[in-house]
Design a protein around this nucleic acid. Sequence first.
DNA 1: AGCTTACGTTAGCAAAGGCTTACCAATCTC
DNA 2: GAGATTGGTAAGCCTTTGCTAACGTAAGCT
Lengths: 119, 119
Amino acid sequence: MDAAARALAEPTRREILRLVRDDERTVGDIADNFPVSRPAISQHLRVLEEAELVTVRSEGTRRYYRARPEGLTGLRDWLDGFWALGLDRLRLEVEREQWQQRKERSASRRAHRQEESHE
Amino acid sequence: MDAAARALAEPTRREILRLVRDDERTVGDIADNFPVSRPAISQHLRVLEEAELVTVRSEGTRRYYRARPEGLTGLRDWLDGFWALGLDRLRLEVEREQWQQRKERSASRRAHRQEESHE
DNA sequence: AGCTTACGTTAGCAAAGGCTTACCAATCTC
DNA sequence: GAGATTGGTAAGCCTTTGCTAACGTAAGCT
């Protein structure tokens, strides 16, 4: 999962991943979509491959890359856990605050009655 | 979202986030859980704060950090979209392959019948 | 066989990133 | 007010990273 997270930290790599999500593409094809050299793309693809976020298929001199969405499982699970528990905590917090406010309002009402009875 | 992705690329920062997920904690408290100096943690916290993954509350000289799960929304959505579409593509692929195999099997049966009739 | 196409690899460079030490500011505490 | 806590900031040092240019290699093409 660490490898996946590091791989996704790069905007270019995220974009590459999006490019090969639906169809497989050759390196040259991919590189045409970016303002950097083909070797640069090749290196990005290596990172993505080592993170198991893409697969390759060789055909003659071409190499077809394609996204491998299962590779995102680890990161996704981590995020899901964090998200669920985090929002749960937030919900509890809101409830606690509302309860606090109700308590304060009734205290304030009591105080007002006190003042009134003093006049 | 870019900031969030970059922030999560660091194992230490992910761990920090986990630490302040349920309760808020002071910087020193957080730093005690890692084998690096307090300034290092302070810098990590700044990255997390700029990525809007944590919030701070000052109280005297202490600073209480706490996770902000909503900050993960962007990344989560990106991942979800990718994931859903990716698995959808996978499903279609499997179906296509099975169809292909059925076609090949019946072709093979036809071929066998041909051979037999030639003998 | 020779040229071309498609890619990976290497070396080298500049920028970014993570760490430490030293220092500074603000707030408690006595 | 003096010293101690708490924590952000700056400077400096490696290491990593993303890039390019140059080269190597294997598979088409003529």
